[in-house]
Design a protein around this nucleic acid. Structure first.
Lengths: 341, 341
DNA sequence: TTGTACGCGTTATCAA
DNA sequence: TTGATAACGCGTACAA
């Protein structure tokens, strides 16, 4: 059989022979566990150095049952929110001596998730998930430590890292309201879905609080992709004058981008012809002219916190709270017009 | 010792016992290698099903010497080019039954790369790298199959996936020249560095071809980060009228974004007060108003091709060419003003 | 066609 | 303080 190893690797055996000790002694030196005499320790370390020995992680994992690897699952890598979360998680894991096996669930069917976990559960110590459809999955049967990022499922008690989505929706709506907007449109958010649902709930609360009725005709529901924003905004813009909203809330980053695309096509100037607010501080929100007023989430930190929560579980450390709620912030730019009242 | 396994996993032994055969028979059925009688095959498959047996990848790798895992290394995850490359690579690898161990090299020191490889080389079959500093690293000592993405090093013969960077620089410069620009500025690109160097070489060729002299004072060299674009563009914009360039080439996506930020701060309108062209079809280039004329690279496909090149090596398949050069395309938008000549 | 037994590289137990 | 050795779960010569 072709073992594909090239020149045979240096093993602990070679080190033992070279140092003139038993392999168990080498192991002890390497792991710094038991008492070892300074003399033999020195001999072993020299042998390791001379031979260029590196532990074989596979063999270690075989016997310890721990792989020091975690599995991270994200919807896809081209969404900048996911990218930031991965960045934060990977940095923390690296610091802690963990490695990341990564998968995207783009085009996943229902059962694929289950298969993925089954197939790799022995290769990883824990799982970090940014769910694509937070409401569809049941993570109950997973035996490994699990942390969900950007996903809260009421009534269940997973370890999660979230933001207060309702507060976000509320802040955005209030920002429009305080600037005199009363015809407010909404793009994205599926009825009954948790994530968009919370944001919408916050929006509704603000509207109620300020005594402004919600016009159902301005609610452009749909999946959280660019297309929903693009088509929704076009419909809103093309409404007759007295119906057309003066301000629009995009429920997430992609729908916001879709809105901007639609408005650009229509030749509408944001912050002038129409006001737009959204979630996440993506490139377009930050650098387009005018900048977009958005809810800023600490994306990289969300990844870090998720990884931290996972590692704490792996180490069986005391964990303060299973749900970590991160702070958000309203970043005001020039996409909201101040209407005369 | 705490083996951390929860209830003991089902092993091949359990399957063998349940099916009333030897473990080697189970193995044969699982791997579909030798002849096995239909009867025993059925028995084994039933046992697998009933017990919910899943192969332990660790043990398999131990004995086969292959992990079916590759190591991917990128500068960071928040750059959309890297995200797209990862997306393409991961999709292809998943299709081919491979898994991806991922690392970012942000804040890496020189020797970290070497350590990373040494530490994990036994856990992976091959390596896929998007280099941060293409010129600094020497990948010569790596024993595993290796593919470099977006990096060509003259005189060496790695497996690489690239574009014709010189052509890209040429096309951008020509676009400005054909629109009547003769005062052309450049942002990014370090003298002697390969990647930016090639793009600049293409720019220089175009300038020469069209008989337009290069004004050294308009060359804002620097690392390929936003900051270089931001500061470079400010300097260019603040130049006295007769010196200020009418058109600027950003050497990559981040410097382009930095340029846009600077111009926005200065209140300059792109495509009107100044023209801007760059590389990569990022969010801002695509959806800001006006859109930016850019060289579009097939980013996801570059990831796919890189992964393909790697898997072909792993399978010891015949490989047509070690350097895969992907097609690029000039995407015209409204960031270039047509000057009267 | 099927079963036995060894080896992959390491840790951990126990005896020396 | 050290050494010998049984696991860990699997693939595969080789024997039956």
């Amino acid at each position: 059989m072709d073992r594909d190893r090239g020149s045979r690797d240096v093993t602990i055996k070679d080190v033992a022979k070279r140092a003139g000790v038993a392999i168990s002694t080498v192991s002890r030196v390497l792991n710094g566990l038991d008492k070892v005499s300074p003399k033999t320790e020195k001999k072993v370390k020299e042998a390791v150095e001379e031979l260029g020995y590196v532990q074989n992680g596979l063999a270690v994992s075989m016997v310890t049952g721990q792989t020091r690897t975690i599995m991270m699952v994200v919807p896809d890598f081209t969404n900048d929110f996911n990218g930031a979360v991965i960045q934060g998680a990977e940095e923390y894991l690296k610091e802690q001596g963990y490695t990341m096996l990564i998968f995207s669930t783009k085009d996943f069917k229902e059962e694929d998730f289950e298969n993925l976990y089954r197939r790799f559960s022995k290769l990883v110590d824990g799982v970090l998930v940014v769910p694509a459809n937070p409401d569809d999955m049941d993570y109950g049967r997973w035996e490994k430590p699990l942390v969900l990022i950007d996903c809260y499922r009421p009534g269940q008690d997973y370890y999660t890292v979230e933001i207060d989505n309702a507060k976000g929706g509320y802040l955005l709506a209030r920002e429009l309201l305080l600037n005199g907007h009363t015809h407010i449109g909404l793009v994205g958010g599926i009825p009954g879905a948790s994530l968009g649902g919370q944001r919408i709930a916050g929006f509704e609360r603000a509207m109620k609080e300020y005594g402004v009725p919600i016009d159902k005709r301005l609610m452009m529901r749909g999946l959280h992709f660019e297309d929903t924003g693009y088509r929704g905004m076009k419909k809103l813009w093309d409404l007759p004058d007295r119906l057309r909203p003066t301000g629009v809330i995009a429920v997430n980053n992609l729908t916001c981008i879709g809105c901007m695309e639609a408005l650009s096509e229509r030749g509408a100037v944001i912050g002038q012809d129409i006001s737009l607010v959204g979630f996440d501080d993506h490139l377009l929100a930050r650098y387009s002219v005018p900048g977009i007023t958005v809810i800023v989430r600490p994306t990289i930190e969300m990844g870090r916190e998720g990884a931290k929560l996972l590692v704490q579980q792996l180490r069986k450390e005391e964990i303060g709270q299973k749900r970590v709620v991160m702070e958000i912030e309203l970043k005001r730019r020039n996409s909201v017009k101040r209407l005369l009242v």
